[in-house]
């Protein structure tokens, strides 16, 4: 029961209080892509949760060994990228062999869905905070769900922006960034302090 509560508390922390987009600004490219393709939000959130859970489980024992190295700031990310490459390759083969219809739909975007800042960030943040296994998995899933939530909130806001009389120089990237910044300000009020990187 205590493991479940620990998992749940880490998941809720990562989902709301330490949201991956609003407090850590990771995965903004995929954020803007998914706001234009809202039907893929659920699919992508599911892929991100799956990839980070599996990669987190594989990388956890290796991480313990590598943290003590003086170059851990470089070696741990490289290790996780290698793990993501392994997970991606296995997923690619399995999808292609056993689920060819699904592979046709998602195969082309699978690479960018696995190798991106949101996925690696979801692995690195618990690693740098030295969380245990349950907390790492809970935090990873919470970050993935938090990413989906952030996409929905930002997507809705960007749609709303189309009805505003935005001045010409602010249209597009500038107003989207300012909007994201103001949402991030609101979430900072919940956190109350700068998060460690």
């Amino acid at each position: 029961m205590s493991y479940f509560l620990q998992f749940l508390s880490m998941m809720l922390t990562a989902l709301f209080i330490e949201n991956i987009i609003f407090t850590r600004a990771l995965g903004t490219s995929w954020l803007f892509y998914l706001t234009k393709h809202p039907k893929e939000i659920f699919k992508y959130t599911l892929v991100l949760s799956g990839i980070t859970t599996v990669s987190g489980l594989i990388g956890y024992p290796l991480r313990g060994v590598l943290h003590s190295h003086e170059m851990s700031h470089v070696i741990v990310p490289v290790m996780y990228i290698a793990v993501l490459a392994l997970v991606y390759s296995v997923t690619y083969f399995l999808l292609k062999k056993f689920l060819p219809e699904k592979f046709e739909k998602i195969g082309q975007n699978l690479g960018t869905a696995v190798f991106n800042c949101a996925a690696l960030g979801t692995l690195l943040v618990p690693a740098s905070a030295r969380l245990d296994l349950i907390s790492t998995i809970g935090y990873g899933i919470g970050m993935s769900l938090g990413f989906g939530l952030a996409v929905i909130i930002v997507g809705y806001g960007l749609t709303r922006l189309e009805y505003c009389r935005v001045p010409k120089i602010f249209r597009g990237v500038p107003i989207a960034l300012i909007y994201l910044g103001l949402l991030s300000l609101a979430f900072y009020g919940l956190v109350g302090h700068q998060l460690p990187t």
């Binding site: 470089v74 990310p77 490289v78 990228i81 991106n116 690696l120 960030g121 990187t197």
Partner: peptide
């Protein structure tokens, strides 16, 4: 973690 994240 940000320099390392540039890799992906």
């Amino acid at each position: 973690i940000y320099p390392a994240l540039l890799a992906v």
